[in-house]
Design a protein around this nucleic acid. Structure first.
Length: 589
RNA sequence: GGGGUCGUGGUGUAGCCUGGUUAACACAUCGGCCUGUCAAGCCGAAGAGCGCGGGUUCAAAUCCCGUCGACCCCGCCA
């Protein structure tokens, strides 16, 4: 071995031991007569001390640059009392170096390897291997590895099998845009990379594997965001002979285990189950952040006869008047209110009505349009504290939800209403089965076509499909959707009903997933499952605000890897083997 | 597809609004001093012509247009 110990483990108890350490030169402190080098590896830092008695060694050490990889032999020594560093686990000791070998010289790095990042993300991504040396990136990466282990331990103990599924799969036009892989053996045909192992895990249930999981890499060719990458990882889970209670129970216990083992946070189980409709009404979001209040109230009934035209016409045309009450909001400046209004407009509102509650009365803004009764009604809803502001949106229900949901989040951040270090998890359940596709006006499955409608809503499939709720659920942590799933339809008849609603002809359905329809004829057990967005979850656990910080080699928002410069062009030969020619007019350059 | 923020020595920023002598600061780098520091300290040096292209002007890092790149958001992501 090139080392007898790592850089994080030496303690005073080992004083006098002869050790061999290897690592990177982190910091160098030269005092003329004595020279310190902090040697770093993923376990920590150890102070190496060079004394001038050994002149040749001292002179070599003086010349060593940052990030050089060295190995040393030396003696563990307890530091003089006044020179101990209580900040470091190894701060009690130092290693007096007797021999040093340079294993690999380093050029001056483009940025200092420190947690106090002073490099831009662009630079960090270009030199990702250096960025990953920073303790913060090391701990996020290590955290993720531990999470893998905890997840596997937990699921194996629950009787699950880890089964890998194909990543060259059939393309389906449903859902996100597929990444396509051209076939050489069958020119003109393509594989797709899986958006998720969804159909394959269902087939595994039909095959009798009962309890399946996989840390599955998924690919979606859509625009990137702070919490979205082209490729990402799911903890993909599917179970047979279960109902939603079983799946949610397992999912929340897995989350609780991960949080306690990785973050030392204990969450109370069972987690709240919030119906979709309630989430939308009270929080304007299907993934509400419940770490703070600012609940939305529906005031339609109270103000539908109001003298304020905007309110009455919204209610008359089937919309609503909804509002949030912001404590301390009366102190918002004119400029801040204008900014909120601009935000509301950006999200589709025509404007943002407001009134302040000061001196025990509503004042300013739209107060002059409100009758005594209406004011009393609004007070009754909110019981506003002195110095609050009420923000109203009068519009279609969907717009009210979207706008107030966005403002609620915005204000929480702006007013610092989210307690630091707080955690809040819950399920959102009873999602609608279908939603209207914006462009075509057609109904499409909100989750996917294999989601089972709630039995008590099945009779609505023919008459009022928009009202049908699904046996679908999401798990929300601190306002992020970290898992989602459903109980699947395992009966061909019910599935046929659903496919009729989304106007998928039998032919088309056969073409898209005939193999799954066939499989369901041969004895499909009732089954359901859930998939965790692993990167998002790791981001939250690591306290970061971008999943790029928990992915070792991520892409930029333009889908580029700045380090190895991909995507890149390929040889003409490779293309010709695949039978691919470019439409030159379409290529960016 | 759309909106916004940013791009200045190796790195991070200031300067830009209100164009004008040698583009400032910190870290890193190099040299010197220093026997107890741990983001060591002190002294000194070198290092950029301001993402790229065009325009306005006597004069552009600064104003205008375009373009490229990074980031945030909307759309999109069953």
């Amino acid at each position: 071995m090139l080392r007898t110990h790592n850089c994080g483990e030496l303690r005073a108890a080992l004083a006098g031991e002869q050790v061999r350490l290897a690592g990177w030169v982190h910091h160098k402190r030269h005092h003329g007569g004595v020279l310190f080098i902090d040697l770093r590896d993923r376990y920590g830092r150890t102070q190496l001390t060079f004394k001038p008695e050994s002149k040749a060694l001292f002179e070599r050490a003086e010349k060593i640059g940052h990030e050089t990889v060295i190995a040393i032999d030396g003696t563990v020594t307890v530091r003089p009392a006044e020179a101990r560093n209580p900040e470091l686990p190894t701060g009690e000791i130092e290693v007096i170096v007797e021999r040093m070998e340079i294993l690999s010289a380093a050029e001056t790095p483009p940025f200092v390897i420190e947690d106090e990042v002073n490099a831009s993300e662009e630079t960090r991504l270009k030199y990702r291997y250096l960025d990953l040396r920073r303790p913060e990136m090391q701990s996020a990466t290590i955290l993720r590895s531990h999470a893998n282990r905890v997840t596997r331990d937990f699921l194996f103990a629950e009787g699950f099998l880890e089964i890998e599924t194909a990543t060259l799969v059939r393309s389906t036009p449903e859902g996100a845009r597929d990444f396509l892989v051209p076939s050489r053996l069958q020119n003109g045909k393509f594989y797709a990379l899986p958006q998720s192992p969804q159909v394959y895990k269902q087939l595994l249930m039909i095959a009798g594997f009962d309890r399946y999981f996989q840390l599955a890499r998924c690919y979606r060719d859509e625009d990137l965001r702070a919490d979205r990458q082209l490729e990402f990882t799911q903890i993909d889970i599917e179970m047979s002979f279960v109902d939603e209670t079983d799946v949610l129970d397992l999912a929340e216990r897995l989350l609780a285990r991960l949080m306690s083992d990785l973050c030392g946070v204990n969450i109370k189980l069972p987690l709240p189950r919030i119906p979709f409709e309630e989430a939308m009404l009270r929080y304007g979001s299907d993934k509400p952040d419940l770490r703070f209040g600012l609940e939305i109230h529906d005031l339609s009934e109270i103000v539908k006869m109001s003298g304020f035209q905007v309110f009455t016409s919204a209610v008359e045309s089937g919309g609503a008047v909804r509002a949030i009450c912001v404590p301390g909001g009366a102190a918002l400046s004119r400029k801040q209110i204008d900014e909120l209004t601009a935000k509301a407009v950006k999200f589709g509102a025509k404007g943002l009505a407001q009134t302040k509650f000061e001196g025990g009365v509503f004042t300013g803004g739209i107060a002059k349009f409100l009758s005594e009764n209406e004011m009393a009604g609004i007070s009754g809803e909110f019981h506003p504290a002195e110095g609050s502001i009420i923000l109203f949106v009068a519009d279609s229900i969907a717009t009210c939800e979207r706008v107030l949901g966005a403002l609620r989040l915005d204000l929480a951040n702006q007013l610092d209403l989210i307690p630091k270090g707080s955690w809040e998890a819950h399920f959102v359940v009873d999602f609608p089965m279908f939603e209207v596709e914006e462009e075509t006006g057609r109904l499409v499955a909100r989750h996917h076509a294999f989601t089972q409608p709630k039995p008590e809503d099945v009779h609505l499939l023919e008459t009022d499909p928009a009202k049908v709720r699904a046996r679908a659920y999401d798990l929300v942590l601190n306002g992020y959707e970290i898992a989602g799933g459903s109980i699947r339809t395992h009966s061909s008849e019910l599935l046929a009903c659903v496919l009729r609603v989304i106007e998928l002809t039998e032919d088309k359905a056969r073409e898209k997933f005939g193999f799954l329809l066939d499989a369901m004829k041969y004895g499909a057990p009732p089954h359901g499952g859930i998939a965790f967005g692993y990167d998002r979850m790791m981001m939250l656990f690591a306290g970061r605000s971008s999943i790029r910080d928990v992915i070792v080699f991520p892409k930029t928002t333009a889908g580029q890897s700045l380090m190895d410069n991909c995507p890149n062009t390929v040889d003409a030969e490779q293309l010709s083997e695949l039978g691919i020619k470019f439409d030159e007019g379409k290529i960016d350059r």
